[in-house]
Each structure stands twice: as structure tokens, then as C-alpha cells.
Design a protein around this nucleic acid. Structure first.
Length: 396
DNA sequence: CCCTTGTTAGCCGCTTCTCA
DNA sequence: TGAGAAGCGGCTAACAAGGG
């Protein structure tokens, strides 16, 4: 093998620890016995030339190593020159030095905020990207100011929550400077505006669905509400958007009684009044719908709005009819009783309603009903009778 | 930096539980 | 069975914080 070297070339006579054979070869991994294949315990020593303390061990100026050790420089006859050379050698490029300090600053912030260390390189890239775009001499180019900014926007871009107050507490940028930079961020990170907030919000809604064991119907309704109202609800925190759409979805669904709005708010770490104000301003005020009382009390009105927009199916309107003094007006000998009722509509006109009573006990009623529908093209209306009022006149 | 948005604290009302 | 206590959900106004 090309990597093998016969040990006889060395001054030492090695023997195998196991079979005591002297047939030892030197490989990259160490000394190996050719008889039994065992790697010897003795360490391979790299040795090329003897150490001579008259020779100062130094690298060329472009290299990173020092000009001798401090002791060597001190002892040497030309020690002043050697020290000068070493100083020159040690001068670091300013950009390199800033980046090195920035790395350490970023690390410190991530640790301080208990954020994942795996994002360090990501943050560092943001740092470099912003720094390159800043003019030399600008105050934000300094790593102390720029590092917290880079951390903040990297995490915001990734839709990972980051506490701004804690960030400012542990970093060296003032609140005023930090706020002032927010106005400029789009110049440096145009992609920040393009982050997929909708996806992040829907992720939060799905988490709510899971934590309260809600149906997929809730999730899809929330999604529809999000896309429908996106333009008017987008200018706020992701948590608030998620809270608003999931609260509307809950209030408009049959699961209204299963989950309290305040519980959703607790999960999202926001206040219920925040949802209420948002629903009032962004839905009721925006569409100029009067009658908002509060989030819960106005839920029926909200449901009507959502139905009108077409996000949920509107429920048939229930008209309460008191069958008071109605009189049987016609009997056709065909086992169907007709009753007529006059109702005054909102515009002051009268509408006539006919109520047909079928006698199920008489055979052949179904055929009669079908014939009636065919002959007269009647439009049927479903009537719900939650309470049976007895003793108020017909029908009996 | 200013205006909009969100939070907090305190209150009310309803429901449920306990006890006489 | 009814009164009172406790707990919870919901509402409001004042104040604080955040976003552009």
C-alpha cells in the first residue's frame, strides 16, 4: 500500500503488543502489525527536523501565526524589531474584527433571550446584509446597535415571537435608536414585508383548533374569514389577527358554547377586549353596521354579517305566527284543510298565507299532495313549531 | 414621534355550589 | 328550598406600549 512505510527506516525496533512480531508497518492510523493486523498502542510521532533554539519560529507577515513566542522575542538579540513585526502581524482588519464581535454579541443576545442558537448564522447573515447597505460612518453600522436589530428582524421574518422589551434590556441599543431604525428597515430588508403572515396566523388557528378539540369546519371558516377580511385586519400583531378570526369563527359556528372567547385569548396571550375592539372597528365600523353592543352580545349580528358575505349559510328566517282567530274557510272533501292568514308586512301591505293541513290517518294523502304540487306549482315553506299553543283556535 | 392599538384593573352579572 | 359565597365570563375606561 502506498500509505505504508517500513519501520526499519526509523532508529526504533518496534514489536507487536500481541504476537511480538517485528514485522511492523507505519500507516496513517499508526503502527500496524503485519502478522496479526493489530494497531500498536505506541503513538505515531511526526518528526521532521530537530528543534534548534537559535532559529526563531515565525511565519510570513501574511500568515496568522505570531512572530515567535514572547519569551523567544525577549531573548532574541533583535527583539525590538521582532516585537514590531509581531505588532504588525497582530493588526486585524477592522471589518473582520467587527464581524467577530458581532458574532459574539449575537450569541449573547440569543442566549439572553433564550432563543435557538441554531439561528445564529441566519442572524449573522442579516447583520452583514444590513451593514453592507449602510454608509460608512452611520451610527447603526456598529455591532452593538446592529446586532439586536439583526436579531429582531431575523426572528420577525421567520414568524418567531420575540420580546422587544427584553431584547432592548439586554442589548446596548437605546429604545429611541431602535424605534428610529424601524422606519428604515424596508430599505435594507425588502423581503421583510413579504413574510407569509397568513400562513403564520393559520398555524396559530390550527393550534387553537387542536387545543380545544374543535372541528375542521372551524378551521376552514377561520381561513375563509382571514382571506375575506385580510386587507382590513392585517395591520396588527399575528396573535391578534388569529384571535379575531378564530373568535368570529367560534361565534358564528355551532361550537359557540363549547369554547369561551376568553379561553382562546388566554391561549394566544392577548386580551379579550383587544378582540372586541378589533371586531367593532374593523367589521362593524368599517361596514357601517349599527347596533354593536359587545363581542358576545352582538354575536348574532356578526353571524348575519358573515352569512350575508357568503362565508356561512344563512339560517332561514323564522316568522312567529300566532294562530289566534283564524277561521277554516274551505273544505274540499279531499282531506286537506285550508286556513288563510293575513299578515301585515313592514311596508304596510297585507300578505295572505295559506296553511294546508293534511290528515295522515287517511290513506292516499301522499298521492293527493303530489298531484296538488304538480297541478298548481306550489311553493312550499317549512314551518317550525317549537311550542304548541293549545286552546287558541284552529287548527285542532 | 405620534397616533393607533393593546393591556390592566375593577366591576357586573350569571351560574354553580354549599349549607341551614 | 332559598340565601349567600365563590368562581367564571364578559364589559369598560384609563393607561401603557407598539408600529409606521
Amino acid at each position: 500500500m502506498a500509505t505504508e512505510k517500513i519501520c526499519q527506516q526509523t532508529n526504533y525496533r518496534l514489536s507487536c503488543d500481541i504476537c511480538e512480531s517485528f514485522d511492523i508497518v507505519e500507516t496513517r492510523e499508526g503502527f500496524v502489525c503485519r502478522d496479526c493486523g493489530v494497531v500498536l498502542e505506541i503513538q505515531k510521532l511526526e518528526y521532521h527536523r530537530p528543534y534548534n533554539d537559535d532559529i526563531v519560529q515565525y511565519a510570513r507577515l501574511s500568515g496568522p501565526t505570531q512572530i515567535g513566542t514572547p519569551r523567544e522575542r525577549f531573548k532574541h538579540s533583535n527583539s525590538i524589531r521582532l516585537n514590531k513585526m509581531n505588532k504588525l502581524q497582530s493588526i486585524e482588519n477592522n471589518e473582520k474584527s467587527v464581524l467577530k464581535k458581532a458574532r459574539s454579541e449575537i450569541s449573547g443576545i440569543l442566549n439572553g433571550l433564550d432563543l435557538p442558537e441554531s439561528y445564529k448564522e441566519f442572524v449573522f447573515n442579516t447583520f452583514k446584509k444590513i451593514r453592507v447597505a449602510l454608509k460608512p460612518g452611520t451610527k447603526y453600522r456598529g455591532y452593538k446597535k446592529l446586532a439586536p436589530i439583526a436579531v429582531y428582524y431575523t426572528f420577525k421574518s421567520q414568524n418567531i415571537p420575540i420580546n422587544e422589551a427584553n431584547l432592548l434590556e439586554i442589548s446596548k441599543i437605546s429604545e429611541k435608536d431602535f424605534d428610529a431604525f424601524k422606519l428604515q428597515i424596508r430599505r435594507f430588508l425588502p423581503e421583510y414585508d413579504k413574510r407569509n403572515i397568513k400562513e403564520c396566523v393559520l398555524r396559530k388557528v390550527y393550534a387553537i383548533k387542536e387545543s380545544f378539540n374543535l372541528s375542521m369546519e372551524f378551521y376552514y371558516l377561520s381561513k375563509k374569514i382571514l382571506y375575506k377580511f385580510w386587507e382590513i385586519i392585517k395591520n396588527t400583531k399575528d396573535d391578534v389577527i388569529a384571535g379575531v378570526i378564530s373568535s368570529i369563527a367560534i361565534l358564528c359556528s355551532h361550537e359557540k358554547n363549547d369554547v369561551k372567547i376568553s379561553s382562546i385569548c388566554k391561549v394566544l396571550n392577548i386580551q379579550m377586549s383587544t378582540i372586541q375592539v378589533n371586531v367593532k372597528k374593523r367589521i362593524f365600523d368599517k361596514f357601517k353596521i349599527p347596533g354593536f353592543i359587545s363581542l358576545i352580545k352582538s354575536s348574532d349580528l356578526l353571524k348575519k354579517i358573515i352569512a350575508k358575505i357568503g362565508l356561512i349559510e344563512s339560517e332561514p328566517e323564522i316568522i312567529k305566527i300566532e294562530l289566534g282567530n283564524a277561521v277554516e274557510v274551505y273544505d274540499h272533501f279531499n282531506n286537506i284543510d285550508f286556513y288563510f292568514y293575513a299578515l301585515r308586512s313592514q311596508d304596510g301591505h297585507y300578505n295572505l298565507i295559506s296553511l294546508n293541513i293534511y290528515d295522515y290517518s287517511i290513506s292516499g294523502y301522499e298521492a293527493q299532495y303530489t298531484k296538488l304540487i304538480k297541478d298548481h306549482l306550489l311553493k312550499t315553506v317549512s314551518l317550525e313549531a317549537p311550542h304548541l299553543l293549545i286552546g287558541k283556535g284552529p287548527p285542532n
